[in-house]
Amino acid sequence: MPPPPPPPEPFFPGTFLRPLCPRPALAREGGKMAAPSSAPLPCPEPGAAPYGNFPNYSRFHPPEARVSLLPDGLLRRLFPAAARPLLGLDVGCNSGELSVALYRHLLGLQDKSSLEQPAAGKDLHLLCCDIDAALIERARQSSPFPASISFANLDIMDSASREPFLSSYLGRFGRSTFDIGFCMSVTMWIHLHHGDSGLREFLAFLSSLCEYLLIEPQPWKCYRAAARRLRKLGRNDFDHFRSLAINGDMAERITQILTKDCAMELVCCFGSTSWDRSLLLFKSNGSNQEGREPSGS
């Protein structure tokens, strides 16, 4: 039998791991949805999902492939003194499989048959939003943790909708920001539909709203694949695809935006999935989040 794989390197918040994650072999491409519209978006076939709202996304990008890259006890390491419930925001949650997997992993609920209290010593309330109402309804119906995980049909790029909704949710906990945000294969869809300025606005918004941000950017080859799918279906190209000045190494470009423009710092790269996407953890340095409560409050 081959020897077991070596254990992952220890993770210490505040430690920079550069360069960004090495690239694995090319695998099947796809994308998770963002939120450029609040209307239902039926998608009878995977290629007909121009907003990333693939109806069976978890079948070709399984959640376990992401969460297995994250160290155990991550919440304890990030928030060692927090006595209050932690708040998380998952943007572009699709039908919720990855959201539930993240919740289980972060709280030490590895046994999927168990609905016991979290073993990680932390209480987490997770708000998950997506543009596709049908996917959100599926997520609600199948969620094993309805008291802790909320699913909402929300256009995250519609400030008139998002501001009151998110403020209302946070207000239930007496908070103005989230402890941790998740943006898993969403940035490309925001970028394609809202351009360079939309991507910058989106990242600035998330960085102002979350103390930590775990982000999985799609590489540039996924942009080309998404445009190619539309062409094969005889549909119009994405409005901004051919005019994007932010291109190339998207993990590096997004890191530059978050660190130089959004007052965040890169804490760690947890590695890359087999389909060539890096998991990057950022932390706010505090200057872009006025009125934030300290983690230990």
Rank of each mutant, 00 (worst) to 15 (best):
Leu20Phe: 07
Leu281Pro: 06
Gln218Ile: 09
Cys268Ala: 06
Glu293Met: 14
Pro8Val: 02
Ala81Asn: 04
Gly47Ser: 05
Leu74Gly: 01
Leu199Ser: 05
Ile131Ser: 14
Pro2His: 05
Glu211His: 14
Leu98Lys: 08
Ser176Arg: 14
Pro36Gly: 14
Ser114Trp: 11
Glu97Lys: 14
Ala251Tyr: 11
Glu216Asp: 09
Met250Lys: 12
Lys32His: 12
Arg140Gln: 14
Ala263Ile: 00
Ala133Thr: 11
Cys210Gln: 13
Phe202Pro: 01
Glu265Gln: 15
Pro13Arg: 04
Arg242Val: 00
Phe60Ile: 12
His191Met: 06
Leu213Gly: 13
Leu98Gln: 09
Ala251Asn: 14
Pro42Trp: 09
Cys128Ser: 15
Ser278Met: 09
Trp220Ile: 01
Ile254Met: 10
Asp158Lys: 06
Leu41Lys: 08
Leu89Trp: 15
Phe165Pro: 00
Ala139His: 06
Pro71Phe: 08
Thr255Asn: 13
Gln256Asp: 12
Leu109Asn: 01
Cys262Trp: 14
Phe270Val: 02
Ser243Gln: 13
Ile136Val: 15
Met188Gly: 01
Ser161Gln: 15
Asp249Gln: 05
Val91Thr: 11
Arg277Pro: 07
Lys283Glu: 12
Pro42Ile: 08
Leu98Trp: 05
Cys93Asp: 04
Gly14Trp: 00
Ile246Gln: 07
Pro24Tyr: 06
Ala133Met: 00
Arg200Ile: 00
Leu154Glu: 01
Cys129Gln: 07
Ala82Asp: 00
Leu75Glu: 01
Ala49Gln: 04
Gly30Pro: 10
Ile254Gly: 01
Asp261Ala: 09
Cys21Tyr: 06
Leu89Ser: 04
Lys112His: 11
Arg66Met: 00
Gly181Met: 04
His194Asp: 08
Cys21Leu: 07
Met1Thr: 11
Gly198His: 11
Gly31Leu: 04
Cys93Lys: 09
Ala82Ser: 12
Asp111Asn: 14
Leu75Asp: 02
Ala225Glu: 12
Leu17His: 11
Leu266His: 15
Ser197Gly: 03
Arg277Ser: 07
Ser197Ile: 03
Ile180Ser: 04
Arg277Val: 05
Trp220Val: 06
